[in-house]
Each structure stands twice: as C-alpha cells, then as structure tokens.
Amino acid sequence: MSMFKSLNIKYIVPLAVILYALPLIPQQPYVTHLMIMTLMWAYLATAWNILGGFSGQLSLGHAAFFGIGAYASYFLTVWYGIPPIVSLIVSGMFASLISIGIGYPCFRYGLRGVYFTLATIAFAEILKDVFIYLRDITGGSLGIWLPVTHEGIVNLYFISKESYYYVITSLWLLLMIILSLAGRFKDYLIAIREDEDVAASIGINITRYKLMALLISSYFTGVGGSFYIYYFRYINPYTAFGLDTSLQMVLISVFGGMYSLWGSFIGSLVLTPIGEYLRITLGGTYVGSHLIIYGVLLIIIIRFMPRGVFGIAEIIRSKYLIRGG
C-alpha cells in the first residue's frame, strides 16, 4: 500500500534467523571480521538515518557521537570499573547529552539546511581537537588501549570473533525492531523532512521532534562507538571524531536509500565489503585510492538513483501497483 508500511517486523524475524545462523558455517577469521564490520556500519548508518534520513537534518558530524561513545566507554571501564556491558548502554547517554550542545541552539533558533550541516562538521572537529589537546586525560593523538580482561559477555571481551558478531548483530536487530515499532514518531520526522511549514500546520512541534530525533540518533551512534572500542580495544581521536567516520555513515545510508529503514543495511552489505577489499588490495600501495572508487560509486548512485538501491525496488513496486490498480 504505502512505502513505509512495508517496513514491517515480519521481515526482521527471518533475517535475524539467517544472520544468527551465519557463523555456523566455518569460515576464516577475516571473513568474520568482514561480517562484523558490515553489521557495525549497517548499525551506525541506521542510527545516523534517524536524523539524516527520516527527519532530513543532514549531519556530517556524527563521528562526534561515535567518538564520545567510544571514549566514555573507556573512561567508565578503566577509571570507574563499570562492567563494559553496562558501559555499552550508558555510553550512548553521554553522546545524547553532548548532542544537546549542538541540537538545542540549531533547532531552537532555526539553523537550517547547509548551516546545520556545517555546524555538525565543526562540532566533531572541535571535539577531535579537544581530545588531541587534553593528552593527560584522553591519551592525546596516540589514542587509548583497553587492557586485557576476563573473557565473557560482561566484559565484552572474547577470543573468538563470532561472539562480537553476535553482539553487533543483536544491537542492529534491536535498533531495527525499535524503529519498526516507532511508526508514528518516524512519520512525524518524515513530515518535518518533507516540509517544515506543512508539518507545523498540522500541529507537529518541529523543534521538539527534531531534538528527539537527534537525541535518539546520537544515543545509538554512541553505543556503536562503544562497540567499536570493545571490539578493536583501541581508538584515537582521528578515527573517533574524524570526518571519514561521519562520511561513512552518510555514504552507506544514502547509497542504500535514506528514505527507508532497510537502506542502511543494504548499503552496508554492498559498500563495506567493497571498501574493506579495496583498502586491503589498494590501500597499501595507493593510499586513499579506495576512497576515490567510493566517491565515484556515490556520484553514480546519486545521479541515477537518488532514492538509493532500495529506492529502485520501491519504484518498480509502485509502478506495478498503479498498473494493477
């Protein structure tokens, strides 16, 4: 019937079964790593898409929330001895808290479009510089390492990569289920994206819903950053707050189709393995060349299918629907 009705929980259940069953097939650790990265970027892009895709507020600074999540996890674990599984959940709240710093002034005083986007870039860059500068606290540009600890879910420390795969898959599925159930909230955000004046005319409190989108989006992005540090056990300000990290979420979401909940997953399914492969094969010899190929791909996508990969399916379906009456 309508494009947003199709994003139903009934698609998530069979997909969950497949995703959880995948590690049962014996595979090289590298393939497992690739699967973890695919799910992690699918998760991060889905989180970005709440603000960028649904509410249409183009953030190019989501690394800020990713980085805060990662560093908050480090501090909570190493300084306060809080179990990592708890930190994983709490770290997102720090990201949300930080996001108010940019969201309130922008949304309350009507910083729209390009100006909002520029503000988000600046926000992440400032955080990066602050974390590089405060060396005594943050470890500076060298970054931080998580110490080795006891294996297990409480410490989010595993010898086998499969366990990390299960964690990130669960996080992504949880996010998808939450978003599938939050239909009305999503509809309000879409209304705001499509036309703010119209959204206001039908009684939607624009400022409030934009802020909520930002808080929720940054929360889940922060949790993603937290997962990142528990998986890699290391992070530095360049990865944590870098423009590359922000762009990656945007590219995947736009490539897959930012108007749909599934777009980020499809985008990551295509782009993450290509990106990793190019990085390994070309990255060493021709530094940065994988980014060029990435960029060209993105230009092609935006030129020929502005609704992303997922959009094509929608177009075919809507044509069929109209013909079929």
Binding site: M3, D187, I190, E194
Partner: peptide
C-alpha cells in the same frame, strides 16, 4: 506544498 516523496494517502494519513 506537500510531502512530495510520499503518496497522497500517506500525506493525509500522517
């Protein structure tokens, strides 16, 4: 004005 990327039905439903 309207929600251009949505169908008529979704416009009114939302």
């Amino acid at each position: 004005k309207g929600f251009n990327n949505l169908t008529v039905f979704d416009n009114i439903r939302i």
